[in-house]
Structure formats: structure tokens, C-alpha cells
Simulated scan of single mutants.
Amino acid sequence: MISDGNDAEDGAVGADPSLDARHADKMAKKKAARDRIMATKSGEKGLIIVHTGAGKGKSSSAFGMIVRCVAHGFPCAVVQFIKGAWDTGERRLLTGHFGDLCQFHAMGEGFTWETQDRARDIAAAQAGWEKAKQLISDPSLRMVVLDEINIALRYDYLAVADVVEFLTTSKPPMTHVVLTGRNAKEELIEIADLVTEMTLVKHPFRSGIKAQPGVEF
């Protein structure tokens, strides 16, 4: 018999019936346990979701959920607190193809070090929050993303107490609100139903690579 030199690889998978049987039994038990857990999860509610941390992916994750809403035909909205001056891919997509389902409000004028005008930044953040409250109060909207609002809160352009009070007392019960940006306030984390912290491991910016279309915007 002539060997092609890959005998070990050819017989590595599925060669041990007892191993396959143990694996099948283990997976069956895991599925049964998961089914029992899922059977207890029948409730639904509008979630307060926070994406924070130094790593990339906070806004990207939020826009991924907006795309899901659009795919399901759910009306939704986005308020951008910082990146309003940017021509982003998500803005092009949502306004150009799904404007009937997703309202997009770019209220910011850029990062604070770009404007260098605190009063102007505060005014833009306040205008963004007023628009956000209007949108969140509309029960026909399934989801509202407040992109980079955590930055506005970090610099005290908005009062976190006002944001927390509104979300806990005035948000319709089935409306999801997603708040993004690093350095989320503890008060916001406390009331959130879902908090994810993006951890920075490596970033191309540190190697001299600039922000690129399709990756950052």
C-alpha cells in the first residue's frame, strides 16, 4: 500500500468510536442543560445597553444591532454625539438605503480636541440629548443608539443624573437604548441591563496606521 504521508491526519478525526460516543453523550447533556435554562427565560423588556472600554468595537457593535433591527423591519434611530462631522460608512448606509426605518441624527461636531470650544461642545451635546429624549419617548421605535454619549458624559457636557433619571423613569418599557463610548459613568453602569467592556490588546494606530474607511468609519 502506498502512503501519501498523511496517514496520521487521515485517521485523526473520527477514528475512535468510543471517543465519538463520549463526545455525543457530553454534547447531549450540555444541550439538555441549556434547554432547561432557556425554558426559564421567557420574559422580554427594553434593555439599557452600555458598550464601553478602551478597545475598538463599541460603536460597531451598536450599529450591528441597528442593522438587525432594520433587517427585522423594526423602526429605530441613531443619535451621534461626537462623530457628527465625520462621513461614516454606517451613516451612508442607513440614510441612503434605510431612511424609512432608521432615523439618523448627527449632532456632534467632532472630538473635543478638534472643536477646542467647550461652550460649543456643551451646546451640541445638549441638543443631542434633547433629540435623544424625543426619540426614546416614541414607543414606535424599537431601538435608539446614543453613539459616543459616554464621552459627552465624561466631560460633563451632560449631567449623568439627568440621563439616568430619564432612562429609568421615562423610557418606554419595550424600547432598547444603546449607549457607547469609553469611560462609562458608574451611575450608568449601575442601571444598565447589559454592559460590555471592550479591552484593548493591540491597535494599528500605535504602529503608525491611520483610521481607515471600512474599519474605523
Rank of each mutant, 00 (worst) to 15 (best):
Arg118Gly: 02
Arg22Leu: 11
Ala28Gly: 03
Ile209Tyr: 10
Ala21Ser: 10
Ala28Cys: 05
Gln212Asp: 04
Met198Thr: 05
Val195Ile: 10
Gln80Gly: 07
Arg68Ala: 05
Arg92Thr: 11
Pro75Ala: 04
Val160Arg: 08
Ala12Thr: 05
Cys76Tyr: 08
Lys83Thr: 04
Met27Gly: 00
Lys41Ala: 11
Pro139Asn: 12
His72Lys: 14
Ile48Arg: 07
Gly110Pro: 10
Gly89Phe: 05
Met174Phe: 13
Met174Glu: 10
Val195Met: 09
Pro213Asn: 10
Ile82His: 13
Asp121His: 13
Lys56Gln: 13
Val145Ala: 12
Ala192Arg: 03
Lys41Thr: 08
Ser18Pro: 00
Gly99His: 00
Met198Ala: 13
Ala127Asn: 11
Ile122Lys: 15
Ala71Leu: 04
Thr196Asn: 09
Gly99Glu: 06
Thr169Trp: 02
Ser59Gly: 15
Gly55Asn: 12
Ala123Cys: 04
Glu190Ala: 12
Thr52Leu: 07
Met38Pro: 00
Ser61Asn: 08
Arg120Asn: 09
Trp129Ser: 03
Ala21Pro: 00
Leu200Asp: 14
Val78Pro: 02
Ser170Pro: 00
Glu197Leu: 08
Ile37Tyr: 13
Val195Asp: 07
Glu44Tyr: 09
Phe111Ile: 03
Arg118Pro: 05
Phe74Arg: 05
Met38Gly: 01
Ala123Ser: 13
Gly55Phe: 11
Asp193Pro: 04
His72Cys: 11
Trp113Asp: 14
Thr115Gly: 08
Ile48Leu: 13
Ser140Met: 10
Lys202Val: 13
Arg206Ile: 08
Gln134Val: 02
Thr112Asn: 13
Asn183Leu: 01
Ala21Lys: 12
Arg92Asp: 11
His203Asn: 14
Phe81Asp: 09
Asp7Ile: 09
Asn6Trp: 10
Gly128Asn: 04
Arg91Leu: 01
Glu148Leu: 12
Ala54Leu: 05
Gly53Glu: 02
Arg154Ser: 13
His176Leu: 01
Lys202Trp: 07
Cys76Ser: 15
Gly55Ser: 10
Asp7Arg: 12
Val145Asp: 05
Val164Trp: 00
Met27Asn: 02
Ile136Lys: 06
Val201Cys: 08
Asp117Arg: 10
Met65Tyr: 02
Ser18Leu: 01
Pro204Thr: 10
Cys102Ile: 01
Lys29Glu: 14
Leu19Met: 03
Arg142Met: 14
Thr180Ala: 00
Phe81His: 07
Asp10Gly: 00
Met107Gln: 09
Val70Asp: 05
Gly84Asn: 11
Arg206Val: 05
Val215Leu: 15
Ala71Ser: 15
Ser60Asp: 06
His176Arg: 00
Arg142His: 14
Ala33Asn: 06
Val195Thr: 14
Thr88Lys: 06
Ala106Leu: 06
Gly181Leu: 06
Arg206Gln: 14
Phe217Gln: 03
Ala123Asn: 07
Phe217Thr: 02
Gly11Lys: 09
Arg142Ser: 15
Ser59Met: 07
Lys133Ser: 01
Ala28Asp: 11
Val163Leu: 02
Met1Asn: 10
Lys41Glu: 12
Ala32Met: 12
Ile136Gly: 06
Ala15Gln: 06
Thr199Ile: 14
Val145Lys: 03
Asp162Ser: 11
Leu135Asn: 02
Val195Asn: 07
Asp4Pro: 04
Asp87Lys: 14
Glu186His: 08
Gly57Val: 06
Gly43Arg: 11
Leu94Val: 01
